[in-house]
C-alpha cells in the first residue's frame, strides 16, 4: 500500500508534466504556424475586425441575410442549444411564431419554401452557416430592401455556396457573415 502510494505520487507528477504541460504547449507552439495563429481566424473589413470566420453573428436587419435562430444570442462568450424536445408544445409554438415572422419580413414567399433550419435553433447557438436554400429564399427581400436587381443578389449567393467536401461528402452551405460582407461591397 505504502509503496503503491509512493509510486502513485511520483508517477502523477511525471504524467502531469507530460499531459498537461509538454503536450498543450507543444500544440500551442505548432498553432503559431496555422492560419489565425492559434487564436481563431478573424475577418477584417477596412482594417477593422468585424468577426470570426467560424462564429456566426446575429443579423436582424432586413437589409442583411439572416442566419439561424440562436439559443445563445450569437454571443460566443458562451454557447448553447435550445435543448427543446421534438414534441414540446411551447417549442412548436415558438417555431410557428418564427415562421410567421419570416413570412411577414419576406413577402411573396410561401411557407413550404422556408427550409427548416431558418426557424430552428442550431446546436451551438453560433452556427455560421445556412443552407443554399436558406439564402435563396431571402433573395427577394434583400433585392427589394437594398434596391438591387434580384439576379445580381442571386448570383452573389451562388458565388458564396461552399461545396461539399471533395464534392461528394456532406451538405453544401453558405457562410452568412461572408455573404453579408460581400453584399455590403456590392453597392
Amino acid at each position: 500500500m505504502k509503496k503503491n502510494l509512493l509510486v502513485s505520487v511520483k508517477l502523477t507528477f511525471v504524467l502531469i508534466l507530460i499531459c498537461a504541460v509538454v503536450f498543450p504547449f507543444l500544440i500551442a507552439g505548432i498553432s503559431k504556424a496555422a492560419p489565425g495563429g492559434g487564436k481563431g481566424e478573424t475577418i477584417t473589413v477596412n482594417g477593422k475586425v468585424v468577426g470570426y470566420e467560424k462564429i456566426g453573428q446575429s443579423f436582424t436587419d432586413d437589409k442583411y441575410f439572416w442566419g439561424r435562430p440562436s439559443a445563445a444570442g450569437y454571443n460566443a462568450a458562451g454557447s448553447g442549444g435550445s435543448n427543446k424536445g421534438p414534441s414540446n408544445p411551447d417549442y412548436l409554438q415558438l417555431v410557428n411564431g418564427r415562421i410567421d415572422s419570416f413570412l411577414a419580413h419576406n413577402p411573396g414567399i410561401k411557407k413550404e419554401e422556408i427550409p427548416s433550419e431558418m426557424v430552428t435553433a442550431s446546436g451551438s447557438g453560433l452556427d455560421p452557416d445556412i443552407s443554399p436554400e436558406g439564402a435563396y429564399v431571402q433573395v427577394k427581400r434583400i433585392a427589394t430592401v437594398q434596391n438591387l436587381p434580384e439576379e445580381k443578389v442571386r448570383a452573389l449567393v451562388k458565388k458564396h455556396i461552399q461545396k461539399p467536401l471533395a464534392g461528394i461528402l456532406g451538405p453544401s452551405r453558405v457562410n452568412v457573415l461572408k455573404l453579408n460582407i460581400a453584399l455590403d461591397e456590392l453597392k
Binding site: 500544440i27 500551442a28 503559431k32 468585424v50 453573428q57 455590403d184
Partner: peptide, 29 residues
Amino acid sequence: GTPAGFDGKDSITTLQGDSVQVSRGPAAG
C-alpha cells in the same frame, strides 16, 4: 481553425454593430 493559444476572450463589434465576446483558449490538444 481550432484555437490552441492561451489568449483569453476577445471582444469584437459585429458587422451589424453588436458587441459580443468570443471565448478561446488552448483547446485543440
